[in-house]
Amino acid sequence: MIHANCRVRLTADDFAFIVRVLSQNESDRVSLVRLLTDEDTRDAILDHDLLAKAILDSPERLPISPQLLFYVLCRRVLRDSKVRSRETSDFIASLLDGFMRTARLDSPEELGQQSMRYISDMLQALGKAGTREAFLLRSHIANYALFVSGIFAENVEQRRRKGAPDISFYEQMGRMNYRAAAEYREAKKFNLQSIYEELSDGFHDVRLALNDLASRLLHVDTPRLPIIAAP
């Protein structure tokens, strides 16, 4: 399961970096350390333009975690879109962190021996899945559709020329499965209901924001993408 938890997984190096970037003197440094322990103030600090600028302008690899990097960049590209909540930005950052760190393109590990490599298989499995399994499958399909269409749009276009589904298909799959997953009680249990609803309504805007993020701010290798076919 992917959860909106990048902000609670910030490391000591992350805090040190934030303090170094934003503090001007020793008294400011102490104040920032104290403020970062308060969630509301922490969120305001993470939205600071100077923090994003320090990350984007650095010519060297920074001593920060992927969760800080992705959260700050996601907030930056999403702030002018319809999807503006911090929780959803945090979820998308966690999604990027999870997929890029583990290259997790298979169905969720929670499905155990039922784990499937191809999303076309997952779509077929929905018809006979139990409630919990269906929620996991729909969540994964929607997350995968957002990740691929957002970060690897050029690859999707290249594959489309060879007969694979196009971007509009991924958008349809993402919207539909986020909306369906939001209706499961598990979505409410894991505090994902409002996030899934926001992503369903704003999938196109989020996809375009991630296209911008991938083309201007990230340098990633293209993975071997599983086959995805219409049901």
Rank of each mutant, 00 (worst) to 15 (best):
A142K: 10
V33D: 00
K188H: 08
K188Q: 14
Y144T: 14
Q193G: 06
E198P: 01
L22E: 01
P63R: 07
I167R: 15
R179V: 00
L213W: 05
R34K: 15
L95D: 04
S120Q: 13
D57C: 10
R216F: 06
V33K: 09
P165H: 07
F15D: 09
L96R: 09
M173T: 13
E157A: 14
D212Q: 13
L111H: 02
E110F: 03
E171V: 10
L96A: 09
L50M: 13
E198M: 04
T11E: 11
A181P: 01
R34E: 12
S139C: 11
L32I: 15
R175A: 06
A230G: 03
S89F: 03
L73Y: 13
L78V: 07
L36Y: 06
L111A: 02
F203I: 11
R79C: 11
L56Y: 05
R104H: 12
H219T: 12
M122H: 01
P231T: 09
Y118R: 09
Y118M: 12
I195F: 02
G150R: 14
R179F: 12
P66I: 00
I64G: 08
S27H: 11
E186V: 03
A182Q: 06
D38K: 14
N5K: 10
V206M: 02
A54L: 08
A230N: 07
V30T: 12
S31H: 07
S107F: 01
R76D: 15
D28N: 12
V8I: 14
D205C: 03
A230Q: 10
R9H: 14
I18R: 01
R20K: 15
Y144P: 02
R42V: 02
N5H: 09
P165D: 03
A164K: 03
D166S: 11
E26H: 11
E39W: 08
S149H: 11
M1T: 15
T131C: 13
L210E: 02
A180Y: 08
